[in-house]
């Protein structure tokens, strides 16, 4: 659904651009391709690493790790798993819902979801290419710490601890 909107928007602007100025449109296409090709090697590596990671760490395993523990130990593990793995949202949210049903706490799931979305250990090579090493590491560390704040508040509000 999102993809259709995205394609629709891109097609609309492309048509508009082409209608207004063919030469500029050509330039835009060239820039788009170059920006893409520039990052392609890093993308490919990330995709392969994620493939290996997800092949090794299956859902049951993640579930076992976060579901069995409770308290801050579980939160830390959940945040670590979230930080390392790169699961698309449409897989992650139903998985999180499943984990909740399987007995995981809201706090752990809050940490998992938050770290999953904000921290990207495997995408760090891509991030470093744009933002340099220091900023990338700092951003990921801060986002990781922030996941614990999210976990605590979600545990308080949703879990009612």
């Amino acid at each position: 659904m999102d993809t259709y909107i995205l394609y629709g928007t891109a097609a609309l602007f492309l048509a508009l651009s082409f209608f207004k100025d063919k030469k500029k449109t050509g330039m835009a296409l060239k820039k788009a391709w170059k920006a893409f090709e520039n990052i392609l090697p890093e993308f490919l590596v990330v995709i392969l690493l994620v493939g290996v990671l997800l092949a090794v760490l299956n859902t049951e395993m993640i579930s076992k790790i976060i579901g069995a523990e409770s308290g801050w130990a579980g939160v830390i593990i959940a945040a670590l798993v979230g930080a390392i793995t790169l699961i698309p949202g449409f897989v992650a949210f139903p998985t999180a819902a499943m984990l909740l049903q399987g007995g995981a706490g809201y706090m752990q799931i809050g940490a998992f979801v938050s770290a999953l979305m904000m921290v990207g250990v495997v995408t760090m090579p891509v991030e470093m290419k744009y933002f340099g090493k220091r900023l990338t590491i700092l951003r990921n560390i801060l986002a990781f710490i922030f996941s614990f704040a999210v976990a605590a508040i979600i545990g308080l509000v949703v879990g009612g601890i």
Binding site: T3, A10, M27, A35
Partner: peptide, 29 residues
Amino acid sequence: AVNISANSFIEMMLVIPPVFLLLGLLDVW
């Protein structure tokens, strides 16, 4: 692992072209 990678590659190829296209247009216009 190969299977998952191939799937996410296809997924990426579906989502990414319009993003970069919009980027190119933004840059020029």
